[in-house]
Design a protein around this nucleic acid. Structure first.
Lengths: 178, 178
DNA sequence: GTCTATAGGTGGATAGAC
DNA sequence: GTCTATCCACCTATAGAC
């Protein structure tokens, strides 16, 4: 990805995480990126195309991180690795995380497919690991609870107590999950 | 609240939960409510005023429900009552819940005060109960984990498996929390 | 108190110079 | 490939009839 595209993507992600997709205009994105508005459309075709590309990039990265974390591990160890990996990803990519949370429970939008993909792939990986760690429980609801505990704790950490360490936050989440 | 105001509020909440606040126009709200656009502005002053009123109403209801649930109980019993009460509220008011989640990690918007209030009052009630149930743990991070597990499971329940019963979902969340 | 009509501004998107 | 200038649809909000 060239320099102009990179700058546009980063500026857009920052603004969109803070205000929401619809509340962010292409004018604002172009100004924050230091390019003309026309360059945004030349490089990404449309606002929806830009958002789609940002989301697709984040989806691929998050899915890979979660699957890699659980690979080769079983039971509780796999679960702990996944929770830690998700917290790491939230910490490394807070803007992407915020966008996903904000858009996750909506329907019928242009970029809905990418959002649904994150949800399904992340939750799917969690469900597999949870089903193996606790075979007697409902994997679907349990995975949602584990994912939710990790996600919300991670975002609260970033937004309101960023000085905490990853180990501290991971330990708190894992202690809460039995 | 009279009939016109009630209709506008309900139409607005339904649309906003699905598309987001900024992506919902006053035209659409008026059409869904079956009133003229002018009536929306006559009754609520502005779009922001309408949103503010909807959020304030929901905040008061949710806070009261959580505090009432925990009143007179201690330790694990208080925790279980609160988790169940939050799930009940999500089930009874799914649109409000979606809006809160979508807007929770944003900053600097007109209605940000109401959102922050839900977060602080809900998390505050959870923190108090958690601190008493598990005195040796970090109350702040633990409360975030418990709240997140309940919230995300509740929303996934509504959005993707609405046929499950409240008892079933509450049991799954509480089993996951040790 | 609710309606219709319209004002005034901003949104996404395009055309054409460089 | 990036810019400036512009189009037109849509947005919030207001004015005035009823």
């Amino acid at each position: 990805m060239n320099d102009t595209r990179r700058q546009i993507v980063e500026a857009a992600l920052g603004l969109v995480a803070d205000r929401g997709i619809s509340a962010t205009s292409v004018d604002e994105i172009a100004a924050a990126a230091g390019v003309a508005k026309g360059s945004v459309f030349y490089n990404f075709g449309s606002k929806a195309g830009l958002i789609e590309e940002i989301l697709a990039e984040g989806v691929a990265r998050l899915t890979a991180a979660l699957q890699e974390a659980a690979a080769g591990l079983e039971g509780r160890a796999a679960l702990e690795a996944m929770v830690t990996a998700l917290l790491q990803q939230i910490h490394a990519h807070p803007d992407f995380s915020k966008v996903i949370v904000a858009e996750s429970f909506r329907t019928g939008r242009l970029w809905q497919d990418s959002i649904r993909q994150v949800r399904e792939e992340s939750m799917g990986t969690f469900t597999t690991v949870v089903a193996q760690a606790w075979p007697q429980r409902d994997p679907w609801l349990t995975a949602a609870a584990v994912f939710g505990a990790t996600l919300v704790t991670g975002l609260e950490w970033l937004a309101f107590q960023p000085d905490r360490s990853l180990d501290e936050v991971a330990a708190a989440v894992l202690t809460t999950l039995a």
